[in-house]
């Protein structure tokens, strides 16, 4: 007796190759057309415009976004954490100490923090892999400065650092850059604003299960 796998594959082959169509209206065989990728591949706008667009679109999702100079980054982080009242902050094991104020308790995750610890923290600070201007999206490939998925999910506040050089114009510019991470077996998370629902009369409500507040520092 054949397995289900063989039966399904057999049914597909019959359907595609020699199965008579159940409809008796058209008898032509399907042809395989090449996929024409003549949609936009690159945003040719000046870099400054692309970065402006990124900031504008992330802001539209009701995230807090600020532009900071490289040498002001530590100060900006300290300010954001203070404004939010963060005392216990989750970070990935490889996040540079120099970014962080001395006054707060760091919960460094080497994959060992419990969900309870993550849940009772006041927030998480991560880097990211990419920003996409067209859609106002942050992409995490859970590589450098980002840690495993749970740490940027369970805490209620996510502070994310993106460098201007990481921002691309369009989605087709982003995908090739993510392929290496995927081939290395890492997950990918696209984040476009804080979690939200429109399930109640289509009113967008920010903040359901993921972090209810998303703050982004764009390092120029």
């Amino acid at each position: 007796m054949s397995t289900t796998r063989e039966r399904i594959l057999q049914r597909i082959q019959t359907a595609l190759h020699d199965g008579a169509p159940t409809g008796r209206l058209v008898a032509e065989q399907p042809t395989t057309e090449p996929v024409l990728r003549d949609y936009r591949q690159r945003d040719e706008a000046p870099r400054a415009d692309i970065i402006d667009r990124f900031i504008e679109r992330v802001t539209e999702y009701k995230a807090i976004v600020r532009r900071v100079e490289e040498d002001q980054l530590a100060a900006a982080i300290a300010e954001a954490l203070a404004a939010r009242g963060v005392e216990r902050l989750v970070i990935s094991a490889d996040l540079p100490e120099a970014w962080l104020p001395a006054s707060i308790t760091l919960l460094r995750d080497a994959g060992d923090l419990s969900y309870e610890t993550l849940g009772s923290s006041h927030g998480v600070l991560t880097g990211c892999a990419l920003g996409i201007a067209q859609t106002g999206t942050l992409v995490l490939d859970h590589g450098a400065l980002q840690g495993r998925r749970a740490i940027s999910l369970v805490p209620d506040y996510h502070l994310c650092i993106v460098h201007a050089a990481q921002i691309v114009g369009l989605l087709p510019e982003a995908m090739p850059q993510l392929e290496a991470a995927v081939r290395a077996g890492r997950p990918i998370t696209f984040i476009s604003g804080p979690s939200a629902t429109s399930d109640i009369e289509l009113n967008r409500v920010e903040g359901v299960h993921g972090p209810r507040t998303l703050e982004v520092l764009v390092v120029i």
Binding site: G111, G136, T137, R148, G185, I188, T189, F190, S192, G193
Partner: peptide, 25 residues
């Protein structure tokens, strides 16, 4: 998909995973 379905430029979260990642998920 997001533009056609919820009418957003992008939905808040998209997750991609490939099999099992040691130490994550």
């Amino acid at each position: 998909l997001p533009r056609s379905s919820t009418g957003e430029r992008m939905n808040p979260y998209t997750s991609l995973w490939t099999g099992v990642t040691p130490g994550d998920g």
